[in-house]
């Protein structure tokens, strides 16, 4: 199998805290890979390192065998690495139409076009319409994002990442905080991700993790703890100990 995304001895320190400790992770092409671990284990930090939001203290990140450790966030997006955020990072004043229109325009290389009207390219609009439909955003497409129900915002969070046509998609707790009634749409959207897109999913909901993933990595205190197929990880006594230990604390 080909490895699309790989980290080698990745490390991130915040002062004295080792948020990411010597993580060497390989994600196979087309994988449904889950990254789990207790609160504060360093899952989001890894995503921030992978996407260039944070610079690593040391270590290397490879995307399709290319060293991207020093690249800026937007350059990594161009190479096909997109993400969603654990806490919504959207454009409050812009509508879903504008948000998606911008994302698609950027990807198709119209982002620095300062002359033509946004949306005047049929190629852009065809994709935007498709995304609005797939993510059930048609009825709110002109509302400012800040006014959307939380579940719709969460859908937009995924839709705008998909608009980047990623080859590797990093999902940071896509269903976090979504009320029960609106969860269905999110789960369906995650399940319906194109199979050629490699997905790294961070999630606390074990039902979702085990129904989705074909590979699971467990992160504890910034370090990779266990990795394997879902049934292996489920059986692993050390993993049980970590999660039971956590429950005992709670």
């Amino acid at each position: 199998m080909t490895i699309v995304l790989e980290t080698r001895n990745l490390e991130k320190r915040f002062g004295g805290i080792i948020a990411t400790g010597n993580v060497s992770l390989s994600i196979e092409k087309g994988a449904r890979h889950a990254l789990i671990g207790p609160n504060g284990a360093g899952k989001t930090t890894i995503i921030n390192l992978l996407t260039g939001v944070l610079p690593p203290t040391s270590g290397t990140i490879l995307l399709e065998d290319k060293d991207i450790t020093g690249l800026s966030t937007h350059a990594r997006v161009r190479l096909g690495l997109a993400r969603t955020f654990q806490i919504n990072q959207l454009f409050p004043d812009l509508s879903p139409l504008q948000t998606l229109g911008l994302a698609v325009s950027e990807r198709l290389g119209y982002g620095h076009d300062w002359w033509r009207v946004t949306g005047s390219k049929p190629a852009v609009m065809a994709e935007v319409v498709d995304l609005l439909e797939r993510f059930h955003l048609g009825d709110v497409m002109e509302d400012p994002t800040a006014q959307l129900p939380y579940g719709k915002q969460r859908l937009l969070e995924i839709a705008v990442a998909i608009a980047c046509r990623p080859r590797v998609l990093l999902l940071d707790e896509p269903a976090a905080g979504v009320p029960e009634g609106e969860r269905e749409d999110i789960l369906a959207a995650v399940a319906a991700l194109p199979s050629d897109v490699t997905v790294l999913l961070i999630e606390h909901d074990m039902d979702l993790v085990f129904s989705f993933a074909d590979r699971i990595s467990v992160l504890v205190n910034g370090r990779l703890f266990v990795e394997g197929r879902p049934e292996e990880v489920a059986q692993d006594p050390r993993v049980k100990a970590v999660y039971l230990g956590e429950e005992a604390h709670a």
Partner: peptide, 11 residues
């Protein structure tokens, strides 16, 4: 609106 997200969609 959000420079972090702007960068994350390739801006």
């Amino acid at each position: 609106n959000n420079p972090l997200r702007a960068a994350a969609i390739g801006v």
